[in-house]
């Protein structure tokens, strides 16, 4: 069991606390009669977890996507890749700590890995600006992508961000221009770009590194034009309406797959990626290898065309 529990996981937690009590009793009294009951209860708890997770509301998936113990960008780098060397700075203003990247090897082959990094604790979060990138983060990301392009190295972007930092400094240094420039320039990259949303895919701050030939999501991640809370505050003028906003916005992986916004869903264990991270790292590695193989012999022109058409077809309207 993880240390941090979500509200909807309470029934499971309660069952486990009962199991713990029984286990203690069994240990203290050396009473083997309880072992059967304990085993049954564990089975029951896990069945309950499966049941709860098979039927999550969108707002509950939002909570899983933001779970404090959920693996982050650097966890995937550490477990799915080798030889990671971080490259710092946008060569213009500074080095963003919330949007980072560098060369690494995947299955022995070089890649450029880029992603947003949240903090693991308060201190870390302050260092990472709570995972909210400034304009220089997006400019650094583009610099690294151009570097990868120059040396024909494929690009892997892992998305995990509430949104770009919505402060005065970001506006001052042109965060809108930085994101826009990435959308424009990523469309022309001559190397494969694989994107996976691993936690929260928050609006333009996510899209700014998400123009991929292939875009996937982890099962319990979310991808949205606005946070459910933000949407509820604007359209309902009531933050408590965020579950309804989450439902309406259609931000879960299955919904987005059905809308052709994403190409693939990478499965997560019951309980979310943090319940069994090793399993998820394996799936992630396998997925990235498979996708890089797919694009290995695409020509630069074909990669550009493929990426353009992927986004060109998105949108629903009537034309009579």
């Amino acid at each position: 069991m993880n240390k941090f529990h979500l509200e909807f996981e309470k029934p499971i937690v309660e069952l486990y606390s009962k199991i713990n009590d029984l286990q203690k009793l069994s240990d203290e009294e050396g009473n083997k009669d309880l072992d059967d009951d304990i085993a049954k209860l564990i089975l029951k708890a896990e069945k309950l977890r499966e049941k709860i997770y098979s039927n999550l509301e969108p707002i509950q998936i939002v909570q899983v996507a933001r779970h404090p113990e959920r693996p982050l960008f650097l966890d995937y780098i550490q477990h799915c890749m080798t030889d990671y060397i971080e490259l710092h700075g946008d060569r213009s203003y500074g080095d963003d700590k919330a949007l980072i990247g560098g060369f690494a090897k995947l299955d022995g082959e070089p890649v450029m890995a880029i992603g947003q990094q949240r903090g693991k604790n308060t201190k870390d979060n302050i260092y990472r600006n709570f995972g909210m990138p400034q304009p220089e983060g997006y400019r650094k990301a583009l610099r690294l992508m151009k570097l990868a392009e120059k040396f024909k190295v494929p690009i892997i972007c892992l998305v995990d961000v509430q949104g770009a930092y919505p402060g005065l400094s970001g506006e001052e240094r042109g965060v809108a221009e930085a994101i826009a420039k990435n959308l424009e320039q990523m469309m022309g990259l001559k190397v494969p770009v694989i994107v996976v949303v691993i936690g929260e895919g928050g609006s333009g701050g996510a899209l700014g590194i998400a123009i991929g030939n292939r875009v996937a999501m982890l099962k319990y991640s979310i991808y949205s034009v606005i946070s459910p809370e933000g949407c509820a505050a604007i359209l309902w003028r009531d933050a408590t309406m965020s579950p309804v906003a989450a439902q309406n916005l259609g931000i879960t992986s299955d919904r987005l797959k059905s809308l052709d916004i994403i190409d693939d869903i990478i499965d997560e264990p019951v309980g979310g990626a943090h319940a069994d991270p090793d399993k998820v790292y394996k799936k992630m590695s396998a997925y990235l290898k498979k996708e890089l193989k797919r694009y290995a012999d695409y020509s630069p022109l074909r990669l550009q065309e493929d990426r353009y058409q992927r986004f060109r077809k998105l949108g629903r309207f009537s034309e009579r």
């Binding site: 826009a180 959308l183 424009e184 469309m187 609006s203 333009g204 899209l207 998400a210 123009i211 991808y223 949205s224 034009v225 309406n248 916005l249 259609g250 931000i251 987005l256 809308l259 916004i261 990426r307 353009y308 986004f311 060109r312 998105l314 949108g315 629903r316």
Partner: peptide, 13 residues
């Protein structure tokens, strides 16, 4: 929803 976000990518492309 997300369809509107994708218009940013489409137009910039």
């Amino acid at each position: 929803g997300i369809l509107s976000l994708m218009q940013m990518a489409k137009t910039s492309g």
